[in-house]
């Protein structure tokens, strides 16, 4: 298999996101429609996330940050950043993993029995 260059890989992800995904529980798109280098993304799992794909994507994972406050172990409570050390999908990154996979896994993380018991910050508060 040949190596799909970063930009064309991200374009394919964008086109998939534009068509609409699975059950619609997660969505994502570019932060700016003119972002030629396809770096800054907004994902939504109930609330929005910022996703930044560096030039090394997909060889290296993007950085992911929650905008609205959420209390789950993989999210840094000061910054909202998803800490790779507590989130195996980012820590043991595979270049097959996509923005969609990350959002679906985060959504799964939010709904595990253990995490559902955690007390959550009031709605409408932001990191």
């Amino acid at each position: 298999m040949s190596v799909l260059p970063r930009n064309f890989r991200l374009l394919a992800e964008l086109e998939k996101g534009e068509k609409g995904l699975g059950d619609g529980s997660v969505s994502y798109g570019l932060e700016s429609p003119e972002d030629t280098y396809l770096s800054s993304w907004i994902g939504t799992i109930i609330g929005p996330n910022q996703i930044f794909c560096d030039k090394d994507y997909p060889n290296k994972p993007p950085s992911v940050k929650f905008e609205s406050k959420i209390n789950i172990p993989c999210v840094n409570q000061q910054t909202g950043v998803v800490e790779p050390k507590n989130f195996p999908l980012l820590k043991d990154w595979s270049d097959k993993t996509t923005i969609e996979t990350i959002l679906l896994e985060l959504r799964r993380e939010m709904t595990t029995t253990a995490n559902r018991r955690l007390q959550q910050p009031p709605e409408g508060t932001y990191f």
Binding site: L4, P5, F8
Partner: peptide, 8 residues
């Protein structure tokens, strides 16, 4: 400037 990729 453009970029072009030949798939498999």
């Amino acid at each position: 400037n453009l970029e072009l990729f030949l798939t498999d």
